[in-house]
Design a binder for these strands. Structure first.
Lengths: 194, 194
DNA sequence: AACTGACTGTTGATAAACCAACATCGTGTT
DNA sequence: AACACGATGTTGGTTTATCAACAGTCAGTT
């Protein structure tokens, strides 16, 4: 996709700016964060910031889009390649979440001001539609109400899991969510979850 | 002293190179560490390395000298200023050690190949001579054997303390070492030290 | 001995980050 | 309203890091 050749300075600059904004988001609301503030914490000259991003919004956009783009990749490789099974894909996706725990918690908690959760929902919609079709539910129609319900539930469950320190292993979460999607709430095994 | 105005890039470059070498020293002997290796771990171009240091030795020198220079500062301000009391100075010095614990352990353990411990001894010599003079021991002469004995003991005690995770607070260590110096081993209170 | 491979130290051209300075826009204060 | 203040974008000139390429050294290998 975006395949500019980044030399080390660019990589470093963007990395620290990114970290800086995320740290600030832990402390205060996005609307109160200034470009100057981000640069000071990152120890980067303000003019350098503008060489990369036009403002705070674009920086946040970039951070969000990177994650969403990663998510899409997982889903696409599943769709295009061997279609092993939906469970495997979900598990890999959730392992990815585990690795990015810190960032995801920050971004999801700032959801009032940012569009991150909306973006996640959009991607999840695609994923879940495909999972639905590829399973024994294929005969049943998936109404937009149902998908909305499933997505809300899934995102919320994952949010809880991240905030709770990820006690359960990724594959357990993958199984749970798959069960929720395919067999409904009553068909799922809740034994492992207090 | 060395008061060049360092811009952010220089600061960053030197900082990562420094950290990189210290990390490598944790894993392997100094003589087996190459410039290329340091640069790769630091993610810095090799030619940039040579813009700052002529080789690994000079980098290590710089790291060692910075710490030794800090130590000298503590000792000098004590000597020149109000001469509050030796105990206070020792305590501040040891607090400084606590802050630099990580680095000191690495450098002291690599002592076979580096000159760090020798440098520390040299500084300690000055410090201890002054402490000796300023206390009730003033009438007694301090032979070079005695100072060597005291310095070896002090450095070793501090090394143990750092490696042991600094269980005792700095002021306790300061008191202990002062006692060792001023009143000898038998006069010291060893109660707090299993 | 010739050969391979890795590390070394140096070079010149290029790209990126730096900094100081400026005019501009809000916000809030006297 | 006039004012001060801080954040904002933008600029041009300077400094630094980057990269690729080079020839040199050295240890181990065939």
């Amino acid at each position: 996709m975006t395949s500019e050749k980044l030399d080390r300075r660019k990589k470093y600059t963007r990395m620290v700016l990114r970290k800086s904004l995320l740290q600030l988001l832990k402390q205060k609301s996005f609307s109160s964060i200034t470009v100057k503030e981000i640069c000071e914490r990152a120890d980067i000259n303000r003019s350098t910031f503008y060489a990369h991003y036009s403002d705070q919004f674009e920086l946040l956009e970039t951070i969000e889009n990177e994650i969403v783009s990663d998510m899409k990749q997982y889903i696409d490789t599943y769709n295009l390649q061997e279609k092993e099974d939906a469970l495997r894909m979900t598990e890999k996706l959730i392992s990815y979440f585990a690795a990015k725990q810190e960032e995801l918690i920050i971004l999801l908690n700032a959801s009032g001001e940012t569009s991150f959760e909306r973006k996640v929902r959009e991607v999840a919609q695609t994923s879940i539609r495909n999972e639905w079709i590829d399973t024994e539910n294929a005969n049943q129609p998936l109404s937009s109400y149902m998908s909305a319900f499933i997505i809300s539930g899934s995102v919320h469950v994952l949010k809880m899991w991240l905030l709770g320190g990820m006690e359960e292993p990724p594959h357990a979460m993958a199984k749970l969510i798959n069960n929720l999607i395919n067999h409904g709430i009553y068909g799922s095994n809740w034994d492992n979850f207090a």
